[in-house]
Amino acid sequence: MPASLTGHTRESLTTWLTERIALYLKRQPSEIDAAVPLAEYGLDSVAAFGLCGDIEEDFDFVLEPTAAWDYPTVHALADHLLAEFAAVDGGAS
């Protein structure tokens, strides 16, 4: 069952994203700096597509695969997700 979009923090999303990205890049989460552009770690379009699929599956939220380039760091992507989640939840009430 997908997680609710409410109740997430930058920290919780940063942790979730870091763990997923580390999995795709075959690294330890501790090796991923949330302020470093993901392209510098070698994140490619296949991994970005997979990450977006994970976001859709876990949060029931569709994110364009280009988001990894539009929001190129874990922090930027987490902030974008927070804003998008708030917009969706705000519109649902």
Rank of each mutant, 00 (worst) to 15 (best):
F59T: 00
P37C: 05
A34Y: 05
Q28Y: 11
E19Y: 01
A34S: 15
A34E: 11
T9P: 04
A47P: 03
A76S: 14
G91D: 07
L38A: 11
S93N: 08
A67H: 13
E57Q: 14
A68Q: 02
F85L: 12
A83V: 14
L38V: 10
A76C: 10
I55H: 02
Q28W: 06
G90H: 10
K26Y: 03
E11T: 10
L51P: 07
W69L: 12
F59S: 03
L25Q: 02
A48R: 01
K26F: 05
F59V: 05
D60G: 13
I32Y: 08
S45K: 07
V36Y: 05
L82M: 14
Y24K: 04
L51S: 08
L63W: 03
A86H: 09
L25G: 06
E11D: 13
L63T: 10
S45I: 07
P72G: 07
I32E: 02
G7P: 12
T66G: 06
A67D: 12
D44P: 01
H75W: 06
D33Y: 00
M1R: 12
T15Q: 14
E64N: 14
V36C: 04
G42Y: 12
L63V: 15
P37N: 08
L25C: 09
D79P: 05
T73R: 08
T15R: 14
A39P: 00
F59I: 07
D79L: 13
K26D: 15
A68S: 14
G50M: 04
S4D: 12
P37E: 13
A68H: 04
A87K: 15
F59N: 02
A39N: 07
D58L: 04
I32W: 03
A47Q: 13
Y24N: 06
Y24V: 00
M1W: 02
F61K: 03
D33K: 14
E56Q: 15
Y71M: 02
L25W: 01
A47Y: 06
A39E: 14
E40T: 15
P2Q: 12
S30Y: 00
G91R: 11
E19N: 12
A22H: 03
D70T: 10
S12M: 08
L43K: 06
A87C: 03
I21K: 00
R27F: 02
L38C: 12
A83D: 13
I32M: 04
Y41E: 06
D54N: 10
V88L: 14
P29N: 13
L81S: 11
